[in-house]
């Protein structure tokens, strides 16, 4: 099983792909590495300004924790997730020359993009947490390892979706147009800017089925409230996400031999 999963997977090649992606997307600018931290912080201050000054947002169950930490802790994993999917969905089409000329396990392309994005945003996340701490929020650092494990699970979910989306986009080009509004919709239906407790019951019930809801709640619980209650949904995630990944990989491989026909 494990062997067939890693068929054609080449660690050295994959590392090159990831490094290349990181360099392309984040380190091309002169101050590339600085931007990696500055950009998320700028974005955070924009959100903080808009939501605390203009909308006067109040989170009822945030307790003494302000809106900014409440938002930031959930916003970064989401950004990594969303950006990873959007970027990697074009991974095959963007590497048409490589895919149609060289034989290699094509799944490494979207997976490398997802990985690079998560790595970069993971670093940004740590920077943000550090800044939150410096600004007086009590970040529960002891729970950070668990949060990182959850981040890995989220990465796996992003990988699964990326494999499906990137292969589908080769055949149905409209995916590139459909995906961004779809991700925006997902963003607003996930309790990132708000809390589940602010919703009417029936909506909250529906939203419980959104896997991102679970992730967002866990990140907040772990890092802001210092508690970990994954519940039954957590168990389901542990099973469902890897399963989804395997299925998605199987789908991808079934069709990767036909990419060249459509590129």
């Amino acid at each position: 099983m494990a062997k067939s999963l890693t068929r054609g997977f080449d660690a050295a090649f994959f590392r090159h792909l990831v490094v290349r992606q990181v360099r392309q997307d984040y380190l091309e600018n002169l101050t590339g590495f600085a931007w990696l931290v500055i950009q998320p912080l700028l974005l955070l201050s924009v959100y903080a300004f808009v939501f605390t000054q203009i909308f006067k947002a109040r989170i009822s169950d945030a307790g003494e924790i302000g809106f900014v930490p409440f938002l930031a802790v959930a916003f970064w994993p989401w950004t990594a997730f969303s950006e990873a999917i959007l970027k990697s969905s074009g991974a095959i089409a963007n590497h048409a020359a490589l895919v149609s000329k060289v034989a290699f396990a094509n799944e490494q392309l979207p997976l490398a993009t997802v990985t690079a994005t998560f790595l970069m945003h993971g670093i940004g996340y740590l920077a943000v947490l550090l800044v939150l701490q410096l600004l007086g929020t009590d970040v529960h650092w002891l729970w950070l390892p668990v949060a990182l494990i959850l981040l890995v699970l989220l990465w796996l979910l992003a990988c699964a979706i990326a494999l499906f989306a990137s292969s589908l986009q080769v055949f149905v080009r409209d995916v590139a147009q459909i995906l961004p509004p779809l991700m925006t919709f997902w963003f607003f239906t996930t309790p990132i800017l708000y809390s589940v407790s602010m919703l009417p019951d029936f909506l909250a019930g529906i939203m419980a089925w959104n896997p991102m809801t679970w992730f967002v709640v866990q990140f907040r619980d772990l890092l802001l409230f210092g508690r970990f209650e994954p519940g039954l949904a957590g168990l389901a995630m542990i099973v469902a996400v890897p399963l989804l990944f395997v299925l998605s990989l199987a789908w991808f491989r079934k069709f990767s031999g036909h990419f060249e026909d459509f590129l």
Binding site: D10, A12, F13, Q24, K101, V102, F104
Partner: peptide, 19 residues
């Protein structure tokens, strides 16, 4: 094929040899 025009020859050699 598989050479990325924006990267140096050396980077591309590394990439290609990995492939």
């Amino acid at each position: 094929a598989g050479f990325q025009p924006d990267f140096s020859g050396m980077d591309n050699v590394r990439m290609k040899s990995a492939i």
